[in-house]
């Protein structure tokens, strides 16, 4: 899941690949704002056919937070 999310950040938001690490902070290290994150989340919802609660966005601080959340929710759907 980490690798998939990493690719998403590179392709959708044009984030410099070298900057992306599990512990990288979305806002501070990668410069992603709340609106871009919401847009990315919507893309993930469509791609994985899942629903991510708006309130969950608040807890996404690092790359790993999103990866862990997605890893937790996607197997449940399968």
């Amino acid at each position: 899941m980490y690798e998939e999310f990493r690719q998403l950040l590179i392709e959708k938001l044009e984030i410099e690949p070298d900057l992306i690490k599990p512990e990288a902070q979305l806002a501070n290290d990668l410069g992603i704002n709340s609106l871009e994150l919401a847009d990315l989340v919507l893309y993930c919802e469509d791609k994985y056919d899942i629903e991510i609660d708006d309130d969950a966005l608040q807890g996404f601080i690092t790359v790993n937070d999103v990866v862990e959340y997605l890893s937790g929710i996607i197997p449940e759907k399968e």
Partner: peptide, 27 residues
């Protein structure tokens, strides 16, 4: 109805005017 749907809703509902803060315009 959700921050996630902002751009989709703008495209689909075709507003003539938006009232925003800079974050939206920057994005």
């Amino acid at each position: 109805d959700s921050l996630k749907h902002t751009f989709k809703n703008i495209t689909e509902t075709k507003p003539t005017c938006l009232i925003l803060v800079p974050l939206f315009l920057e994005t």
